[in-house]
């Protein structure tokens, strides 16, 4: 299935200037094709969400971007470099889903140790502060909560001051408060112009924190655009208004109208182009109390990821 690119010039631009460029990326585990011929480019400074259900191929893709696993076919470049080169230069850093920490070290020791590996690393206190864990520096990692451990991984990722930060399901297993604190730290950091790619299956996270969403299903990109564009793509919007004299035929002729439901003197119109409907209602009829409601991202997500029906 060819993927739907809504926000255009990004894809065709040269890969030299891309933060990340994936070309024909393919990976199988036994008979399961986890990633199928994936093409993607991410521009410097973008905050991109890889959104998809569990098993969609997000983690496999992230692993290949980081050079932790080798693609069967295709190519990954980070700022025009091979992943391991970008990593050795501290240009890319990642916050992985679980593990990756020694329980017998303290929070600060973990940061200090990792910092020794990056020439010109940011000071330990600075990254602890930015990750919001300066106050628990002397705590053993094994005694930290899941959220605190995740913020420690984030602190480690900040050490090289990377141009590209990759987060793989960063808030899995955190409680609501932990998730909010974690994202607050990320959001503050994003102002530095860092490119951020995060994989998630939480729709709200993609909606709230990404300026571009790449929807992945069964190893393929099924949609790519802003949250608003993705929502539109799946199911459009609903326009509701009170109309005294409704000309059903004229309304049906408005481009993008999918269905019309009359309820008393009100009317509910599902449309992919709510602007056209609203313009028609407000200019050609006596419509009042007009409301446009967007479907939430969840509807789009389900429609795009659950069945093969939609394109």
């Amino acid at each position: 299935m060819a993927h739907t690119t809504l926000s255009d010039p990004r894809v065709d631009a040269g890969t030299k200037n891309d933060a990340v460029a994936l070309r024909g990326l393919t990976k199988s585990f036994g008979k399961v094709q986890a990633v199928k011929n994936l093409d993607l480019s991410v521009k410097p400074g973008e905050v991109v969400a890889f959104l998809g259900p569990n098993g969609a191929g997000k983690t496999s893709t992230v692993d290949m971007i980081l050079g932790l696993s080798k693609p069967d076919a295709g190519e990954v470049t980070i700022y025009g470099m091979a992943p391991h080169v970008a990593i050795s230069r501290g240009q890319v850093a990642a916050v992985m889903q679980t593990g990756g920490l020694l329980r017998d070290l303290t929070v600060r020791e973990t940061v200090v140790l990792t910092a020794t590996l990056f020439p010109g690393a940011r000071p330990a206190d600075e990254v602890l502060e930015r990750a919001g864990i300066l106050n628990i520096g002397d705590r053993r990692v094994g005694k930290c909560s899941g959220g605190q451990q995740q913020r420690l991984r984030f602190a480690l990722a900040l050490l090289p001051d990377p141009d590209l930060l990759i987060l793989d399901e960063p808030t899995t297993g955190m409680d609501v408060e932990g998730r909010r604190d974690f994202w607050n730290a990320i959001r503050k950091d994003a102002a530095t112009g860092r490119t951020v790619i995060f994989a998630t299956h939480y729709l709200e996270e993609a909606d709230a924190y990404a300026d571009r969403i790449v929807l992945i299903r069964e190893g393929e990109i099924v949609a790519d655009g802003t949250a608003a564009e993705i929502k539109n793509l799946a199911s459009g919007r609903t326009v509701r208004a009170t109309v005294t004299h409704l000309d059903r035929e004229a309304l049906t002729a408005v481009p993008g109208v999918d269905s019309i439901e009359e309820r008393g003197d009100g009317v509910l119109i599902h449309a992919s182009d709510s602007d056209a409907v609203a313009r028609y209602l407000l200019t050609a009829t006596d419509a009042r109390d007009l409301e446009i409601t967007s479907h939430n991202l969840e509807d789009a997500f389900l429609a795009l990821t659950s069945s093969k029906g939609i394109s």
Binding site: L66, I87, A93, M96, T98, G100, L101, L102
Partner: peptide, 10 residues
Amino acid sequence: GWSRQLRLTP
């Protein structure tokens, strides 16, 4: 998972 974490460093 520490070895894996170290693979994300130089």
